[in-house]
Design a protein around this nucleic acid. Structure first.
Lengths: 309, 309
DNA sequence: GTGAAAGCGCTAACAT
DNA sequence: ATGTTAGCGCTTTCAC
């Protein structure tokens, strides 16, 4: 036995010695994987790892994956359906055991088509009933952000959102509208921009929002980048922050901390979202049965009040 | 033949039909890989993908890898030698065909130990003669940054650098010192901080640099993050930028664009560094013989003058 | 020009 | 408690 009882010891020792002495033995994982039909790989699909939000979720994924003995293959889909399809083939070709999608730009149904019944976790953007997911309650987070602005006395609160109809964007817009309505504020305005990750789109949105005859006195950005862009444009224009214009962002990525003044934002638990996504996926792969209660996770977010409000 | 000549056609057609009809055939890559002893995987080792510089280089790596039919496995080493060693085992276990290291925090020699003769490209931080590398000429880039400051009339130019003795940091420090010396400026001061990716370390460095009786009138930061932190601290303190204090960063990551005023920086060609690293690695894997001229690349950088100088 | 067979390195099941 | 064998799915070689 391996724990050294019986007369086997000398031989066991000899083997161990050989291995240690030669210092040259490494099992070929390819053979192992083929035999066990288990690749030990997770596909992580993001639109671009250059997006800090994605990068931090990926950090979380990687650490949990490593803890449980898996490695991750990274796919920058660039939101291209072709690239996505190409990478998803890895599931059928048994190169990966499962996939975590974070790519908000795609149709979930199209993904489902390619993924079939392979293990899958949706992270961030999701559709209920299609596959397990890990996200936050975007609606209530948006409400908290807007309520925070309302409580500070703002009356004309605008929003910068995404042109594409992502579910998360719709939920945040709905939260925005409902909070205004509940507070009896009839003034509302949503500017839709092309690129959620662009500072300049945020700056342009600011221009659009303040050029009219009824400029807003607060902006809720659907992402920190957008909000940063708007905030900086306002600072450049000489606006007093937060008196003349208050700004709230969304995500809690590092750039929210480097504006002057520092930006209030909704902090998403990015690392934990990554951890939990990986955990859920590996559970699926390893055949653990999960209730929908265990596999449909909305993690807590946090309003981080700073100097822009 | 596959191009449809001869009497084979009907059978070929039948086969193709079957495959297409069933729509269910996907070759098992595990078998393929085992047979060909070629994993088609590249290991990409970064200290953390949360670092935007790394993330953008990884984008470049991924796109070139994909173009040439490879996939990438991501390792966040967190600069831990244990984690690095664990991931490098993938080389011996034939899970990956080669590795690109971007982790400046480690001893290159320790890496060499684990990597042995496996295909390897050093990206960013490198040691000549150990393995092919892709980087920039840090010395001349630093000189350009400091010369730019000198030309704008600054006399007391300080530098924020890394506490750890990375090669790239030493080269940039040397460039800084030589430019000052050549301009006949005897005043010099280098503050060494712990974390090159930290805004707050940049801010603290600013405090240290301006609290004395001889405050500096310009700062050269070894990274954009550090320079951002210093710039923002200066703005908060009410300094006139660039008249009272000019700032130059290094890297050209997005955060350099969102300061107010926008920050002058040295732009590294991150995407291309990634592309070339992947290309070099795949060439090695595929047995292409390269001269040192082809495999030791110092790519062009660019000084991007903006409003902080 | 097509089909059968061997073997990549591993592990599970079997026989000793 | 050890040794042997078969087969994971593929490709390359060899015989037809």
């Amino acid at each position: 036995m391996i724990n050294g009882t019986g007369p086997v010891k000398p031989e066991t020792r000899e083997k161990v010695m050989r291995v240690v002495e030669q210092e040259g033995f490494h099992p070929n994982r390819l053979g192992q994987k083929l035999r066990n039909s288990h690749s030990g790989m997770l596909l992580v699909m993001v639109s671009s790892i250059g997006n800090p939000f994605c990068a931090l979720v990926v950090c979380g994924i990687e650490s949990e994956a490593e803890r449980r003995g898996y490695h991750i293959i990274l796919c920058n889909s660039e939101s291209s359906p072709q690239r996505e399809a190409a990478y998803l083939k890895l599931l059928h070709e048994r190169t990966v055991d499962g996939v975590i999608t974070m790519d908000a730009t795609t149709q979930i149904d199209a993904l489902k088509e390619h993924i079939g019944h392979h293990p899958w976790v949706q992270c961030g953007e999701y559709k209920q009933g299609v596959a397990p997911f890990v996200s936050i309650d975007n609606y209530s987070a948006a409400r908290a952000a807007v309520d925070h602005l309302i409580q500070s006395g703002k009356k004309r609160i605008a929003m910068i959102s995404a042109r594409e109809g992502y579910k998360y964007a719709q939920e945040r817009e709905q939260g925005y509208l409902d909070s205004l309505a509940e507070a009896g504020l009839s003034w509302h305005k949503i500017v839709h921009v092309r690129n959620v990750m662009s500072f300049t789109d945020g700056a342009s949105a600011y221009e659009a929002l303040t050029s009219g005859d009824e400029p807003c006195d607060a902006i809720f950005g659907i992402s920190d980048m957008l909000a940063c862009g708007a905030l900086n444009a306002a600072v450049k224009a000489g606006k007093a922050i937060p008196d003349q214009l208050a700004v709230v962002g969304f995500d809690g990525v590092p750039c929210s901390e480097i504006t002057v003044p520092m930006m209030t934002t909704i902090q998403q638990p990015m690392l934990e979202m990554g951890n939990r996504s990986a955990g859920l996926l590996i559970d699926q792969i390893e055949g653990k049965l999960l209730t929908s209660h265990e596999s449909e996770l909305l993690l807590p977010w946090k309003l981080v009040p700073r100097d822009s409000t």
